[in-house]
């Protein structure tokens, strides 16, 4: 199959029997995280349309299982880096959605004091090295962090999240070679949603895309259904262990974004049929249905969903009522020497 055909076909879920025994609680908490991301993103979209959030908002809706499944297998001092579609990665790594919502509103108390906005959320206290406005630049930076881990002989790993569009940037290719020759503890996570903005990535990507490129540098990994939290969880656990103290590996996760690239495009480059078929494979719906099959009570699922809704409602209230930053902040943290004015 060509990668184009593959990307148009919704992935299949694992049978419910594949759930490891006794893990319902773990998966329920992952589902809760996915709900937090979903609610955060839907709220961000609404607030953007209402004119309360400016700039670009790239929603992660539909891809939540990847960030949550991977980050559930990272330690708090492991590093991640992200791209323009970064809210889910940050939340999954442990960033506070209230601070993040304030950031999207450009308010005081935002994760970056309102100076970064949606595309530039970072939280160094949890090893989140930054979302990024430049495609693939987060990947190379994570490899640099991996280099530091090696220099400092630390027990950590670095995990760059990036899209299928990033695969064609030269620096990403340089990073693969680099991570391999220095044997860096880097777990590449390629989120293949089939599109880079309004372009089908299969139309502009030769060969088998990321996987073939990684392999050609001697980097191995696994291809998974990125909408199945169990698959992501299992592979991430196993590969995070392997990467720790060893050379790089990759996760190639097939998925789909439900919404337009950044709320601005018409979305006309995708068919409604394609969108509808992928929505049947919504990672939250999938996880919910097999958790129910595995004996988790509907009430428990409703409870995690309710908690997520309540948290995001609080985040919105907090963001709306937070003051604007002090104007002096505009000129702070440029550099130590030399005045901006």
């Amino acid at each position: 199959m060509t990668s184009r055909e593959k990307s148009a076909v919704p992935p299949s879920g694992l049978p419910a029997s594949a759930i490891p025994l006794g893990s319902n609680e773990r998966f329920l908490s992952m589902l809760g995280k996915m709900y937090v991301i979903r609610e955060f993103e839907e709220a961000a979209g609404q607030e953007w349309h209402a004119g309360n959030i400016r700039g670009s908002v790239h929603q992660y809706v539909g891809q939540e299982a990847i960030a949550v499944g991977v980050c559930s297998n990272l330690r708090s001092d492991d590093y991640i880096s992200s791209n323009h579609r970064g809210h889910g990665h940050s939340i999954a790594k442990g960033a506070d959605p209230i601070g993040m919502m304030k950031e999207l509103f450009g308010r005081e108390g935002g994760t970056c004091g309102g100076k970064g906005g949606s595309m530039h959320i970072a939280d160094f206290s949890i090893g989140m090295l930054g979302a990024n406005g430049v495609v693939a630049d987060g990947v190379t930076i994570a490899v640099g962090a991996g280099h530091a881990i090696k220099v400092l002989k630390q027990d950590r790993i670095a995990v760059p999240f990036f899209g299928d569009g990033a695969v064609n940037r030269g620096p990403l290719m340089e990073s693969l070679n680099w991570a391999k020759i220095y044997d860096l503890p880097v777990l590449y996570v390629c989120e293949h949603n089939g599109y880079a903005a309004t372009t089908r990535t299969s139309d502009v990507t030769a060969g088998e895309g990321f996987i073939a490129r990684a392999r050609s540098f001697g980097i191995e990994g696994e291809e998974i259904d990125g909408n199945d939290i169990r698959a992501v969880d299992e592979v991430a656990r196993h590969l995070a262990q392997r990467v720790r103290g060893n050379g790089p590996a990759y996760i190639f996760a097939r998925t789909y974004r439900h919404h337009p690239h950044n709320l601005r495009d018409s979305g006309a480059y995708r068919t409604q049929d394609e969108i509808d078929r992928w929505k049947l494979k919504d990672p939250i719906k999938l996880a919910t249905s097999w958790l129910l099959e595995a004996g988790v009570a509907r009430a428990e699922i409703n409870a995690v969903e309710g908690d997520a809704k309540a948290l995001i409602a609080r985040a919105l209230t907090a963001a709306r009522s937070a003051p604007w930053p002090q104007l002096s902040a505009a000129l702070e943290n440029v550099q130590d020497l030399g005045a901006p004015l």
Partner: peptide, 15 residues
């Protein structure tokens, strides 16, 4: 001013 362009509206306006 010699600073990157900040995101927040009043800060951006200040630049």
């Amino acid at each position: 001013p010699r600073c990157p362009v900040p995101f927040s509206m009043p800060l951006e306006d200040a630049c």
